[in-house]
Simulated scan of single mutants.
Amino acid sequence: MSSSLPTLLALLVLLVGPGAACVLRSSPPLLLKESIRIVKNVQKEVSCDKMNVTDIFVDNKTNNRTELLCEATAIVWENQHCHKNLQGLFLNLCQLLNASSTSLKAPCPVAAGNTTSMKKFLGHLHGFLQQLVKENLLFSL
């Protein structure tokens, strides 16, 4: 008895976790919505919410939206150990970054600066992603 490749890929995605499933063939708007859902769920369940991360959103007037997305991707990548769904969020953010920029590839270097808690970072990331959806800025980052 043999399984087809699509069936095996589907099983692999199910084993990886809920956040990674949307990466296979989702459009950027769906990736954004899925990323927002993941951030919202992780905010409720994050075990290391008091952990400090670089606050990239504190002075976002100096960064453009693509750079913010790239830096957010780097912070999520560095802290994937904090919650299992952060890996799915990282994959989604990479796909969003690839859709919006050909020059930046995640993870981008994040300069040291002010720090914030992981909980606050996730709250700011949630707002940032919602703003992208609201303003329909995905391809004009």
Rank of each mutant, 00 (worst) to 15 (best):
P109Y: 15
L97F: 10
P29V: 09
A20Q: 09
N52V: 02
D49L: 03
S27L: 07
A74K: 06
I36G: 00
F139Y: 12
N98P: 00
E71A: 05
A111W: 02
W77F: 15
K50P: 01
L15V: 12
F121K: 00
L137M: 09
L14G: 11
L97N: 11
V13Q: 14
N52L: 07
H124K: 03
G19F: 03
S101V: 01
G113W: 08
N136Q: 15
V13S: 13
L89W: 05
M51G: 02
L15R: 11
L9W: 06
Q131G: 12
I36A: 01
N114G: 05
G19W: 05
C22L: 13
C48K: 11
H81S: 14
K40L: 12
R37Q: 12
R37P: 02
N63T: 15
L91R: 10
F139H: 10
F90H: 09
F57C: 11
E78W: 02
N98W: 04
H83C: 03
L69W: 15
K40W: 13
K134Q: 15
M51W: 09
N79P: 05
Q131W: 08
G19D: 03
A111V: 05
K33M: 00
F57W: 15
K105R: 09
M118S: 00
L97K: 08
L32S: 10
G19I: 01
M51R: 09
F139I: 09
L14K: 14
G123A: 09
E45R: 11
P107M: 08
A99G: 04
C70Y: 08
S4A: 13
L138E: 13
R25P: 00
V76F: 04
A74L: 10
K120A: 10
Q95T: 05
L104G: 00
Q131E: 14
I38T: 09
S140E: 11
K61G: 15
V76W: 06
E45C: 06
R25A: 06
W77K: 12
F90A: 01
Q80S: 06
V133R: 01
L9S: 04
L122K: 05
H83E: 04
S47H: 13
C82Y: 03
Q131D: 15
V53M: 02
P6D: 08
V42R: 03
A111T: 06
K40C: 11
L125I: 10
L104V: 00
L9V: 12
E34I: 00
L68I: 15
L104F: 00
S35T: 07
C48I: 11
A99K: 01
L31Q: 12
S35K: 02
L15W: 09
C70S: 07
S117L: 00
E67S: 13
F90M: 02
C82S: 04
L97Q: 11
K50Y: 05
L97A: 08
K44Q: 14
C82E: 03
E34M: 02
S35H: 08
T7C: 06
N60H: 15
L5V: 12
V16W: 09
V76D: 05
H83P: 04
L125R: 02
A21P: 04
T115L: 04
L89H: 04
S101A: 01
R65Q: 07
T116S: 14
T115G: 03
